[in-house]
C-alpha cells in the first residue's frame, strides 16, 4: 500500500499531538493541577493515529478510560480538552465528565468510558445506525486487551458479526490490565484469536508502527464501508506510564527493562527516522512540527487556566434532554 507524503505527515502530526497533550497532562497532574484519575496514552500513539487516519470526519469511534489519544486522533481541540481535564466550564463536557468521559459527538467521538468494555456495544449501535441511514459511515471500537475478558465485548463482537455491521474492533494490546499482566487473566496470547469465534477476520499488527496500523485500518475500514462486515485489528503496543498517573519506572508489577525495550521502538521517533531516511521529511521540518504543536499546548493550558469553573447551578443542567417535539421531522 502506497502511503502518500501528505498522509505520512498527517499520521505523524496526530501522534505528536497525542504525545504532547499527554505529556502536558502528566506534568499538570504531577503538579496537582488536575483533579481525578488520569490514564495516559503515551506509547500507544500509533494505534489511535493509524486507525483514525483511515476514518472520515463523520465516522464514529468509541473509546476507553484511556481516551485522550482517541479524541486527539479524531481531531479533538486541545483547548477544550485541557479545560475539561481541569474541570472547567469551557471544557468539552463543561466540567461534568473529566478525563474519563471526554467526548466530542460532533467529531464522532462517542466518549471515553469509565466502564471497561462498555464502548464496544455502543460502537455496535453506531454501526447499526450508520448502515440504517445508509450514508456509508463506519464505526470503530477501541478497546484494551483486558476488556476482552468482559461479557460486553463478546456480546458486541457477536452481534456485530451476526448483523454483519460496518464496524472495526481495534484492540490496544498493551499486555496489562491495570496492574495485572495479561497472561494471568487469559489463556491465549493473541487477542486476535477471539475474532474467529465470531466469524470475523482478524490481524495482528505492530502497534508501534503507525504505517502498519494504518494499512490494516484502511483495509478493515474499506471492508466495513463496502458491506464486508466487521473485522478485528490487534495492535501490540505498550503504555509507558503507570495504569494511571505518571510514574513509569519502579513499578512492582512490571520490570523497568521492559519499559526500556519498548521505548526503543517508540512509535513517533522511529517513524520520524524512517521519514527522514526515505527523504519524506527533514529533521528541521520535524522539529518545526513539534515546535508548532508545543505552542498549541501552551495556548491550551493558558486557555484552561483562564477559564472559569462551572457554577453550582449547573449541577442540575443536562440531566435530561428537553422532550422531543420533532418526531418525524428529521430528514
Amino acid at each position: 500500500m502506497e502511503i502518500s507524503t501528505t498522509k505520512q505527515f498527517d499520521l505523524h502530526r496526530r501522534m505528536v499531538r497525542i504525545r504532547l497533550f499527554e505529556e502536558a497532562a502528566g506534568r499538570l497532574a504531577e503538579a496537582n493541577r488536575l483533579p481525578g484519575f488520569l490514564h495516559l496514552y503515551v506509547g500507544e500513539e500509533a494505534v489511535a493515529s493509524g486507525v483514525c487516519g483511515a476514518l472520515n470526519d463523520d465516522d464514529h469511534i468509541t473509546s476507553t478510560h484511556r481516551g485522550h489519544g482517541h479524541l486527539v486522533a479524531k481531531g479533538g481541540d486541545f483547548n477544550r480538552m485541557m479545560a475539561e481535564l481541569m474541570g472547567k466550564a469551557t471544557g468539552y463536557c463543561k466540567g461534568k465528565g473529566g478525563s474519563m468521559h471526554i467526548s466530542d459527538t460532533s467529531l464522532g467521538m462517542l466518549g471515553a468510558n469509565g466502564i471497561v468494555g462498555a464502548g464496544s456495544p455502543i460502537a455496535v449501535g453506531a454501526a447499526f445506525a450508520n448502515r440504517y441511514r445508509g450514508r456509508g459511515q463506519v464505526a470503530v471500537a477501541f478497546f484494551g486487551d483486558g476488556s476482552t475478558n468482559i461479557g460486553a465485548f463478546h456480546e458486541a463482537a457477536n452481534m456485530a458479526c451476526a448483523l454483519h455491521l460496518p464496524i472495526v474492533f481495534a484492540c490496544e494490546n498493551n499486555e496489562y490490565g491495570e496492574f495485572t499482566p495479561r497472561h494471568k487473566t487469559m489463556a491465549i496470547t493473541d487477542i486476535v484469536d477471539r475474532a474467529a469465534g465470531y466469524g470475523m477476520p482478524g490481524v495482528i499488527v505492530d502497534g508501534m508502527d503507525v504505517i502498519a496500523v494504518h494499512e490494516a485500518a484502511v483495509e478493515a475500514v474499506e471492508r466495513a464501508r463496502q458491506g464486508g462486515g466487521p473485522s478485528l485489528i490487534e495492535a501490540k503496543t505498550y503504555r509507558y506510564y503507570n495504569h494511571h498517573g505518571i510514574q513509569n519506572l519502579g513499578l512492582k508489577y512490571r520490570p523497568d527493562e521492559e519499559v526500556a525495550t519498548w521505548k526503543q521502538r517508540d512509535p513517533i521517533f522511529t517513524f520520524e527516522d524512517r521519514m527522514i531516511e526515505n527523504g519524506v521529511a527533514t529533521r528541521e521540518k520535524v522539529d518545526e512540527i513539534w515546535a508548532e504543536l508545543r505552542q498549541d499546548i501552551e495556548t491550551a493550558i493558558q486557555f484552561a487556566d483562564d477559564s472559569p469553573y462551572p457554577t453550582p447551578d449547573q449541577i442540575m443542567v443536562d440531566v435530561y434532554t428537553k422532550s422531543s417535539t420533532t418526531i418525524g421531522t428529521k430528514s
Binding site: G95, T311, P312, V319
Partner: peptide, 16 residues
C-alpha cells in the same frame, strides 16, 4: 445528593 449523576469538576462535586 441532587437528582443528577455525580459531576466531575470539584467545583460542582463539592456542592453535590
Amino acid at each position: 445528593a441532587p437528582f443528577s449523576p455525580v459531576p466531575f469538576s470539584p467545583a460542582l462535586e463539592q456542592h453535590y
